[in-house]
Every structure is written in structure tokens, then in C-alpha cells.
């Protein structure tokens, strides 16, 4: 068990290091930090001072070391455009994105898993067929179009729901939440659904495919030949075996929700990290871009670790010493 976790941690560290390298390389080679920070009228001497102060004259290795050292402490430097520390910007925006992602993850899982299981078990029924058709439409709908159509119907034509922003938020000091007010929830509905649809359809299709695979295995045939009930075969034998491969992919998908939020946030003007990031790209604001990248990498690694531990508790084959 410890060995297993240890190996995973080592892999996670490797991933983080690679991501840090990319983020650092962006700093180094895209644009010139000095001209980004300095104004038009800064003298050459002042520029050289700034260069020295930023440590840009040190060796690349030293700079990379410093970059990582700072990043671990949450220091990503100053935004080129907004002239405020990136860490403050992120801290301000992070709660909005996390709440949005969690709510849509819940929607995707709660709706997606039962639908996937149903379409696999009753794959010839008309309901399962219409679920499959719906899921095909689901993966064919670009996220931003779902948002636009929702806005058109519920925002513009029916005027039931707000079309932008988070609504009223409550400041808890270290966290701002929209989940404590009615208007916060109302604002959440459309963005959360928009973000959930694509993941949900993926989950439905994935679970269906894996479960059909499992239902064809010998041990399911043997279970049937032993006279076990269909209920037990479907749920305690087939479903559990389906979850083993599915859990990794779902974990990854949920992790990617935070990044997918970029699109939703820009459709609904949701004040989260995604919106920050997309603006940063437009302005080539490298510190924000690299900080965002590192944060996403970290969330991914974290989720992956959780998934691995889950995996471990489900599959006994991993538990023996090999």
C-alpha cells in the first residue's frame, strides 16, 4: 500500500515538475518581462536595474529553482497588465470556479451514472435508445452553444434566469460563496448545466461501453449459469467490475471541469479563473497564464491521487505484493 502510494506520489511530482517547466519556459521565452513591466519612458539603465532586480541575469537553472521555490509558496509575480500580485487575483477568482465545477460535477455524476447503467442493461429498450441519441447530440453540442441557447430561451425570451455574473455572494473572509443566497443559486443554474452536459454525456457513453464489455465476460455467463438473480448479476457483479476502469476516466473528466469552465465562464461572464485566464491570453499576460497552468496541474494531480486510492480499495488485484 505504502509502496503503491509512494510510486504514485513520485509520478505526481514528475507531472508537476513538467508542468512547472512549461510554465517557466513561457516566462523565459514568450515576450520580455522587462518591457512588459517597464513603461515606455523607462531608461536603459533603469531597465537594466529592473532586469537585475528580477534576477533575469542569473543562470537559467537558478531562475528555475527560484521559480519553483516561489511557486510552492504561492508566489507567481505580478500581472503584467493589472499590476497586482497574481496570487491575489487567483485567490479572489478561485471560489467562483470551484463552486461552479463542483455543482456541475455533481449534476454530471448523479444524472450520468444511472443513465449509463440503464442504457447498458436495457440496451434495446426505447428509453435506452433515446438516451443514446440524446447523448450523441450532447457530445455534438459545443459547450458555448449550449450556453447561448440557454441564455436565449431562459434569459432573453422567458426572462426567468439571470444571464451573467454570480448573483449575490456572501463573503466569509477567506472564501466568497454564492451558495447561500437565492440569487446565487439562480445564477448558478444555467452555467452549471452548461458545464455539466458534455461531461454527463461522456459518462453515459463510457459507462455503457464498459458495462457492455463486462456483461460479455465469462464470469457473468458463469454467474447466470449458476442461477444468480439478474439483479445481483447486474449490480453486485457487473457494475462493480465496470467501475474499476471507469473510475479513472471519470476522475480525469471531473478534474478537467475546472479547465472547461473557461468556456462557460466567458459565455456567462462568470467571475472565475477561466475568465481571468482567457483575458490573460488575449493580453499575453504570462504570469497569470503560468500560475493558472500550475494550479490546474495541481488540482489534476490531487484528483488523480484520490482516484488511485479509490481504485486501490475496489480492486483486490492491486493489493497483493507483486
Amino acid at each position: 500500500m505504502l509502496f503503491f502510494i509512494g510510486r504514485r506520489l513520485y509520478q505526481a511530482a514528475l507531472v508537476m515538475l513538467t508542468v512547472a517547466l512549461v510554465a517557466f519556459a513561457m516566462f523565459q521565452y514568450v515576450g520580455d518581462p522587462v518591457s512588459n513591466l517597464a513603461g515606455q519612458d523607462t531608461t536603459v539603465a533603469d531597465r537594466e536595474l529592473l532586469r537585475e532586480a528580477l534576477g533575469l541575469n542569473d543562470s537559467v537553472l537558478e531562475q528555475f529553482g527560484r521559480f519553483i521555490f516561489n511557486a510552492v509558496q504561492g508566489e507567481f509575480g505580478q500581472s503584467y497588465r493589472m499590476r497586482v500580485p497574481v496570487s491575489d487575483l487567483i485567490a479572489e477568482r478561485f471560489p467562483a470556479t470551484l463552486e461552479l465545477s463542483l455543482v456541475s460535477a455533481l449534476i454530471a455524476l448523479i444524472v450520468g451514472i444511472p443513465m449509463g447503467v440503464y442504457t447498458a442493461l436495457r440496451r434495446n429498450s426505447w428509453l435506452a435508445r433515446s438516451f443514446m441519441t440524446l447523448s450523441l447530440i450532447g457530445i455534438s453540442l459545443p459547450t458555448f452553444l449550449i450556453g447561448i441557447f440557454l441564455i436565449l430561451f431562459f434569459g432573453v425570451i422567458l426572462q426567468w434566469l439571470p444571464t451573467f455574473g454570480r448573483g449575490q455572494v456572501v463573503d466569509l473572509g477567506w472564501w466568497t460563496t454564492g451558495l447561500l443566497t437565492a440569487s446565487g443559486w439562480k445564477s448558478m443554474i444555467m452555467p452549471a448545466i452548461t458545464l455539466a452536459v458534455f461531461q454527463m454525456t461522456l459518462i453515459v457513453r463510457l459507462i455503457r461501453a464498459e458495462m457492455l464489455e463486462v456483461l460479455r465476460t465469462d464470469y457473468i455467463k458463469f454467474a447466470r449459469a449458476r442461477g444468480l438473480t439478474e439483479r445481483s448479476i447486474s449490480f453486485s457483479h457487473a457494475l462493480k467490475n465496470t467501475l474499476v476502469p471507469v473510475i479513472t476516466i471519470i476522475g480525469l473528466q471531473i478534474g478537467s471541469l475546472i479547465a472547461f469552465a473557461i468556456i462557460t465562464e466567458s459565455v456567462f461572464q462568470w467571475p472565475g479563473m477561466g475568465l481571468l485566464f482567457i483575458q490573460a491570453i488575449g493580453e499575453v499576460d504570462i504570469p497569470i497564464m503560468s500560475a493558472y497552468l500550475l494550479l490546474i496541474g495541481f488540482v489534476f494531480v490531487l484528483i488523480n491521487l484520490i482516484v488511485d486510492i479509490l481504485y486501490f480499495s475496489i480492486d483486490p488485484r492491486l493489493r497483493v505484493e507483486r
Partner: peptide, 19 residues
């Protein structure tokens, strides 16, 4: 099935639920 007529399959490696 199982109660009055039992069946044995060919491949023991795949006939048992691994979990």
C-alpha cells in the same frame, strides 16, 4: 440453473468474478 443443472466453463482464469 445452478440448483438442478450446473455448468463448468472452459477457462478458469476468466470464469470467476475478480473483485
Amino acid at each position: 440453473r445452478g440448483k438442478r443443472i450446473g455448468m463448468i466453463f472452459q477457462d478458469p482464469l476468466t470464469s470467476l468474478n475478480p473483485l
